[in-house]
Design a protein around this nucleic acid. Structure first.
Lengths: 101, 101
DNA sequence: ATTACATTTGACCAGTTTTGTCAAAACACA
DNA sequence: TGTGTTTTGACAAAACTGGTCAAATGTAAT
């Protein structure tokens, strides 16, 4: 199962770059990027977009990876996770409809 | 579409109680409860359980309502919400399997 | 209109969590 | 061992949460 960290680590290695170089390019401390790659820290949305641009990864792909990591993390200890996801989906559907009246 | 705030407001009104009274009973400031009822603030998990107990609402029902509000809120501006939910579900499934090896 | 009471709002504080910075430690390997 | 990379951990700054309180607003009866 993929995750945000894997995606950016693989992308970096495919380009043969060091953390230091990516750090300089994106203006993010290399220690933080190291932590991103090991899923020890979650990036901000802005940072996700920086990575997508730099590594030419599809923006949506990376955002979905990042957001789903977050949701899965929030629900990891919840026995009710599946119910929660289903209800959340309904709520989002409902909200979209309400908005478009 | 229901939400946490509606559930506890309806429960309170069915019992004919004032915010002040619920506040005293649960030891939560009435201003905060007012905000919960209008979904202006999210309660903590402990508070959710307090409400469930006091109003005799099924614990799971209320927790699902609360957690799904939170997930839906996090994803409300995301066009990718549905993809995210699907991927998050897979991740949770995967994590549970990995744990039980 | 005034009173009495309930609810809502907003400003403020405190505590927690998140994010960024840095240098030292650990690792890899010639 | 020496060189360069990555990881770790301590620390501070910034952002976010949660609680408290009083004033403002809303509501209904007199």
């Amino acid at each position: 199962m993929s995750n945000f960290g894997d995606l950016i680590r693989i992308a970096r290695e495919e380009k043969g770059l060091f953390l230091r170089q990516v750090a300089a390019e994106l203006d993010i401390d290399q220690a933080i990027i190291s932590k991103f790659e090991r899923n020890e820290r979650k990036p901000t949305k802005e940072q996700v977009l920086k990575f997508a641009k730099f590594f030419k990864i599809d923006k949506e792909t990376l955002l979905v990876e990042w957001l789903s990591d977050k949701v899965a993390y929030d629900l990891q200890d919840e026995k009710l996770a599946n119910k929660v996801l289903k209800v959340a989906e309904e709520k989002l559907k409902y909200n979209r409809q309400s908005k478009n009246i």
